[in-house]
Amino acid sequence: MKIAIIDYGAGNIKSVQFALERLGYEGVCTSNPNEIRSADKVIFPGVGAANSAMNELQKSGLNELIPSLKQPVMGICLGMQLMCTSSEENDTACLGIFPMKVQKFNHDLKIPHIGWNQIDDFGSSLFNQILPSGYVYFVHSYYVPLSQFTTSTATYSFKFSATIQKNNFFGCQFHPEKSSDVGMQILNNFLKL
């Protein structure tokens, strides 16, 4: 199986590559459109600020490529947020795969939402063999609200989308590559789709 990890200069892409390695798969970090298009699975990671990430994607034309992909694509953290229509983070226009607006946490709890929190309300085969209320690692200040695309939730003052799915596009707000056994199982489930 060919797995492309989209490399657009931002983010801790090595972590994703290493997580695949631990699962016995090889992931290629690449910005090459042909390589991405021909991969069996695509992972779209992201750490960083939405506007600088979108700038990088536009420079390389990846902003056009990603929404046109037909194979399973998983956006992680900022990668998931960038697949939405827009983000309140510096009022950034994003890729528009999910017709959702990414919002800033705006409550009295500590922000960013950093640490291990539980996921529930599973509605996807990504969660095969995952027990409800399993712990995964989040680190973010912006969130995707609940919608028809939500396939699991987490609660931080209120419920928000921990994962989303639309056709072949999967978004994961937490970092499966850093979420111990639960995260590894979710990645494995994605790779087996």
Binding site: V47, G48, A49, L78, V139, H140, S141
Partner: peptide, 9 residues
């Protein structure tokens, strides 16, 4: 740093 990488890291 926060502008480039996001404040969360």
């Amino acid at each position: 740093l926060s502008n480039v990488f996001g404040n969360q890291c």
